[in-house]
């Protein structure tokens, strides 16, 4: 369980909490409470951290992490492209790992730390990967871009953590940062405009890969 004590609850979070009907105190662990009364309304309370801010929400059990981010927290940088884990536009980083926010329930994120594209950087204060995407023109329409960037950041960490991929030649040697490794690992992020080559250039640049 992540502790909540280090975290300042921002004004915005308080507003969201109150808008979400019930303000909860702290990030209590344990079983998630069912809302009492109307058994047709299946909702649960959940608290998780998004880009450093804690959010206490009461949500429809069916709400995905993606819809919680977009529709409830108004963090629309995370995109919906298929809603079935087939395109990668909704990629966010949860507890240090990238995942498809469309294929996990918000109420399963209790205590987790979620980083979205908004948490990586802002215009004027860009994450190096965001800056590299601009420099190398790693996007056209910009829709798959937040997912590509979140994935890119995580891919470099996965390679650094020696997690193998389909193209890793030797499972028992450390994984190397190569174009093929990056391409394979980024294959869960579809770009229909076809910025793939430029995305690889951006990741290579940030990862310090030799050309």
């Amino acid at each position: 369980m992540q502790t909540s004590t280090h975290l300042e609850i921002s004004r915005r979070d308080l507003l969201i909490s109150s808008a979400a009907t019930v303000a909860v105190t702290g990030v209590a662990g344990g079983a998630i409470a069912q809302s009492a009364g109307n058994d047709m309304v299946q909702t649960s309370k959940v608290s998780f951290i998004v880009n450093g801010d804690i959010h206490n929400m009461k949500l429809d059990n069916r709400t995905t992490l993606l819809d919680a981010l977009r529709e409830h927290l108004h963090l629309t940088g995370t995109k919906k492209g298929c809603d079935h884990g087939q395109c990668g536009a909704c990629t966010v980083i949860v507890d240090g790992r990238r995942l498809n926010a469309c294929l996990t329930l918000a109420i399963m994120q209790e205590g987790r730390r979620v980083t979205t594209i908004e948490g990586l950087g802002k215009p004027g204060d860009l994450h190096p990967m965001q800056a590299a995407f601009i420099k190398h023109d790693g996007f056209q329409c910009g829709y798959c871009t937040p997912g590509q960037i979140c994935s890119s950041v995580a891919v470099l960490e996965e390679i650094g953590a020696n997690i193998p991929s389909h193209v890793t030649a030797d499972l028992t040697s450390p994984v190397a940062l190569t174009a093929a490794e990056v391409r394979e690992r980024m294959s869960g992020n579809i770009c229909r405009c076809g910025a793939y080559s430029n995305i690889i250039d951006a990741i290579s640049d940030v990862g310090g890969m030799k050309a």
Partner: peptide, 23 residues
């Protein structure tokens, strides 16, 4: 697994995407 059951490791990374395998 990588050392003794390479087949398993290989089959896993042949499936899905990095995002899906993380979950």
């Amino acid at each position: 697994v990588r050392r003794d059951y390479g087949l398993l490791s290989r089959a896993l990374v042949a499936g899905a995407s990095g995002q899906l395998r993380n979950v």
